[in-house]
Design a protein around this nucleic acid. Structure first.
Lengths: 205, 205
DNA sequence: CGCCGAGTTGAACTGAATCAAGAAACGTGG
DNA sequence: CCACGTTTCTTGATTCAGTTCAACTCGGCG
């Protein structure tokens, strides 16, 4: 029963429809954005399903309405490295592949059952012609993501395994129950064994 | 990544005045952009001079016309960590500080004598009202920078000191003579001693 | 049930950091 | 142009955080 309660508290109410998001950003009623949504496809994917794999071009930017995605690579010695997680309300794509029409070198995979909106390449620019504030919002999102990446680089350059884990906790503490620890370890740049030890130490101290 | 290489080949050792850059992006004659430049200040800084230091708000985005800047932090144990280099034609700023009016936690310092254009906070948005293509260009620049950061994260997660050095060489080979090795080491997330050993090994092998 | 993937724990190993000491390059003033 | 101090770079010996490898526990699920 406890499990069930937690399930609903953690996963239940968290969904953010794309049309709603767009209407909010443009500050217009939902009905006003409907005409633009013809180009948007929706897709459900199950846990562990892949959206893109290395070698194929990534045709969309994925907006997560429900669930969590991760983007990762596999290096020369077979180890996975998580580049990014994307929970509800986040965008994820291999920009290099989408922008430059190159084959991707990443996997994008569902780590929970997901509802996605598939945003085609020029969707933003098209709508921005009528609603310039969308491009500004996009600029803001990109800037925020750059801040996040710079912060992550700083941590990878200077912080210990424990410090990185604590930093993740402090920023995404609710999120931590939704990713397997071995993926979190990969995101933090440490082995699952090391993360296990770090958590063990912290539990004692 | 090809873009970046081209970028450096095009703009690397020369100088690129800001007004010229703006006219090129807007695809108008130089004279047309003159009226907008009233809000731009220009500044020369000497090698080792600081533009911002931790605790102060970063009021501008700096466009480098000539020279090289670096942005870095100092961690709890006194070690420097280089977040970014910016040679000619590049923009640099602590976005978090500029966007959110927070005190910065970074240093921005000249590592060569520099000519800079100081871009105030809302300059882009203002001009974009008349020339929307500027916002699109900005979006492209931000996306390219995100690709670069993701690539760097991937390397920090998965690559050895030697692999990171070789990657830097392959992308910025001309640039390497313009930064002291200890700053490059810091950018790569290794010690100067380790970088020295890596270079020594490569020279033999 | 028994299987399998996730997580933990232990012991040995290693890439890179640290500490320490020189060598080379740089620039500044005489 | 050289002498001198300062900064940058190299080299060697030692140490350490985190990895690797291997064995084991736990919980979910067909």
């Amino acid at each position: 029963m406890q499990d069930l309660i937690e399930h609903f508290e953690n996963y239940g109410p968290k969904t953010l429809p794309f049309d709603q998001w767009l209407a909010d950003v443009l500050e217009v009623p939902l009905a006003t954005v409907q005409p633009f949504l013809g180009k948007i496809q929706y897709r459900k994917v199950e846990k562990n399903e892949f959206l893109i794999m290395p070698g194929t071009v990534c045709p969309y930017t994925y907006y997560v309405e429900r669930g969590v995605l991760r983007m990762y690579t596999i290096d020369g010695s077979g180890k996975e490295h998580v580049i990014q997680f994307a929970p509800e309300g986040w965008y994820i794509t291999d920009r290099k592949s989408t922008y430059l029409d190159e084959p991707s070198s990443y996997f994008i995979q569902a780590i929970e059952d997901c509802d996605l909106a598939l945003i085609p390449k020029h969707f933003l620019q098209d709508i921005s012609k009528k609603y310039p504030q969308l491009l500004e919002k996009n600029t803001f999102i990109l800037n925020r993501y750059i801040m996040l990446l710079q912060h992550r680089v700083t941590l990878l350059l200077s912080a210990t395994a424990e410090e990185r884990y604590l930093d993740f906790l402090s920023t995404y503490k609710d999120f931590i129950h939704r990713v397997p620890l071995y993926m979190l370890a990969s995101y933090l740049g440490i082995t699952p064994e090391s993360l296990s030890r770090v958590r063990n130490e912290l539990a004692k101290g």
